[in-house]
Amino acid sequence: MNSMTAEDLLLHLRMMPSQERARFFALVGQQAFRDENLSHEEVLGHLAGDEFTSKEAAEYLEVSMPTFRRLVASGKLASSSEVGRSQLYAVPALKAFKRQRQAVKG
């Protein structure tokens, strides 16, 4: 059996017509999340020790970049490390912050 590497798959996906690529990812999404009762841990548990960039953190928190910057400037969020000029944010801290915001919203 001839197996394909992730790099090969990415190359093939890039060469697909955009409509077919969109259809492919829709099918992947449907298959991956068939069971709508997945827990947060089941979907994102593998990220528990990771760090997100500012953009990724804002997307995870479902806020705009200006709102994210305000949260950082006000001290409500703090970076866990820096790489060059980029700040990284620990996933567990973002998860706790998101839960807290959701509890306040009701």
Rank of each mutant, 00 (worst) to 15 (best):
R21Q: 03
L11S: 08
E42L: 11
V72A: 01
T5S: 07
N2K: 13
R34M: 10
A90C: 00
A32D: 14
E41K: 07
D8T: 11
F97G: 00
D50K: 08
K105P: 02
E7L: 14
L11V: 13
S81L: 03
K98I: 09
V104C: 08
S39E: 06
G49Q: 12
E82S: 06
R70W: 12
V43Q: 09
R85H: 05
P17S: 15
L10Y: 14
S81P: 00
R23Q: 12
Y89E: 05
E59N: 06
E62D: 03
H12T: 08
M1F: 00
A93I: 03
S81M: 04
Y60G: 06
P17T: 15
L47H: 13
E36Q: 14
S3W: 07
F25A: 02
M15L: 15
L47Y: 14
L44C: 13
R99N: 10
A93K: 09
S18A: 15
E51C: 10
L61W: 03
V104Q: 12
G49V: 03
L38F: 12
H12C: 12
P92F: 02
V83W: 11
R70G: 00
L9G: 01
T67C: 06
T67V: 06
L44T: 07
Q87Y: 01
L47T: 14
V63A: 01
E56G: 10
E82V: 02
L27I: 09
R69V: 07
L71T: 07
P92L: 09
L61P: 02
S64P: 01
A48F: 11
A26Y: 03
A103L: 04
A57I: 08
F97T: 00
F97V: 00
E41R: 11
L11Q: 11
M4T: 07
E56W: 09
R85W: 06
K76M: 06
G75N: 04
S64I: 01
E41A: 13
A73T: 14
Y60N: 08
E56Y: 10
R23Y: 06
P92G: 04
R21C: 04
H46F: 11
G45M: 13
H46W: 08
S64K: 07
Q100G: 14
D8R: 11
E59G: 04
G29V: 09
M4W: 15
K76N: 03
T67E: 05
H40T: 15
R99C: 08
A6E: 13
M15K: 14
M1E: 05
E51W: 12
A26G: 13
T5G: 00
K105Y: 04
